[in-house]
Design a protein around this nucleic acid. Structure first.
Lengths: 224, 224
DNA sequence: GCCCGTCTGTGACCGCGGTTCCACAGGCCT
DNA sequence: AGGCCTGTGGAACCGCGGTCACAGACGGGC
């Protein structure tokens, strides 16, 4: 057993405690029949109207799942973090449907792509894995439903404030990236950020936003 | 066995072919431990921040699942038709979370509310039922994701045209109801409908919209 | 140093969709 | 008849968000 193999196994079980309960023999098969992929930042992992070729378990990095309009504008549906699986892939595998969105590597991503056959087998026979996948489904559905409400009813400055708060005290990203998360355009985000800055809520630098008054931002982001 | 009981069983198996495979003993328990509910049109079946008390299988009528804003405006996430189950309830039961939306009876609704314990049991032990629930999850997630894109990127006239086409050649509904599906307000829907009428695409009467030029509507609703 | 691509600031403009308010027609009730 | 309630028509107004165009600013490569 090579050191990297051992690391992979360890990392997998750490990130996905569910798999710790898996019988050793099957864990071996999981590792043998699945592909460990390393993809550089910005890669497109899957795209709309493509069939699904495996169920990805993210170990490092993250995957932005995004819908894009013909105009080129896009909006982020959710983000798959380490320790999570991409639920769209699950749906595609189970329903034999194609993807309806795009998955983009955010940062360098390491993931284990579980082959469709093995995925089905695990779903059939390994209850903890089912729970895991089901749980993900519930979370995602709730997230996306929440997103519908926000897009439909909340103003962009509120949603931007919320995003900034959520991303922590210092955000390293271009205005364009933020716009892509919100489903808006660069100019509007820039304009709003400027207005936040003029109110002393944030400090703006190139590719960096520092929150200086999180409370006011939060108040705007989550109004009574 | 009373005639109504027999009818119920028959109807249940017709609507949910999945359950036909269920062992007889368990079908008995399903009927015994679940509640057959009849609710009048407009009733609120569940609401946001409530715990879930059962997994509903819709036999007749339909359930509109809706998110509403503080302003009173609302938007429909999806509709649960006969032969379907409400997936939000599934998520709530499995994740022990509260509802995030509201369910409204559209037309008089007859549904079988499966008790949480039995629901869990079926999920654990009855594979066809699992497939059924999983399938619903996949569909709903795809629908709601599609909705996000539409709300974020498409104009209201396009979405209204699409809705009219989808609802068939004659729609019996108030403008307010249509607005509630789209996440808009009555005045805007009226305005758009009037513009459709002036173009000869629809005929407007009280609580009734007749499509006179579906092709043009469809072209607006699904632009290249 | 230089250039060039990326990121950001900014102003003018504009249209969709939302808000507000009122009028009026059709049922349905007493 | 009168009253009321719901559903719809219509107009004035307005602000958010999007589009377009362009000018700096910064940084990386040469």
């Amino acid at each position: 057993m090579s050191p990297t193999e051992k690391d992979t196994r360890q990392q997998l079980v750490e990130r996905f405690p569910t798999l710790a309960e898996l019988a050793l023999a099957r864990l071996e098969r999981l590792l043998a029949e699945s592909q460990m992929l390393k993809v550089p930042a910005g890669s497109i992992l899957f795209d709309a109207d493509q069939p699904c070729r495996g169920f990805p378990l993210v170990l490092e990095g993250a995957v932005r799942v995004v819908m894009s309009a013909p105009s080129g504008r896009e909006i982020m549906l959710y983000r798959v973090e380490p320790g999570q699986g991409c639920i769209m892939s699950g749906g595609c595998l189970l329903g034999h449907a194609d993807y309806a969105a795009r998955g983009i590597a955010e940062g360098d991503v390491r993931l284990l792509s579980v082959a469709p056959g093995l995925f089905h087998e695990l779903m059939l026979e390994f209850e903890p894995f089912r729970r895991f996948v089901f749980g993900m489904y519930g979370e995602r559905l709730a997230e996306v439903m929440q997103l519908v409400e926000e897009v439909a009813f909340r103003r962009l400055d509120e949603r931007l404030a919320q995003l900034l708060i959520h991303r922590g005290p210092v955000i390293e990203a271009t205005h364009q990236k933020l716009a892509d998360e919100l489903g808006s355009v660069r100019e509007i985000v820039s304009r709003l950020l400027r207005s936040f800055e003029s109110r002393g809520w944030v400090k703006l630098e190139r590719e960096r936003i520092t929150l200086t008054d999180p409370k006011s931002l939060a108040a705007l982001g989550a109004p009574a």
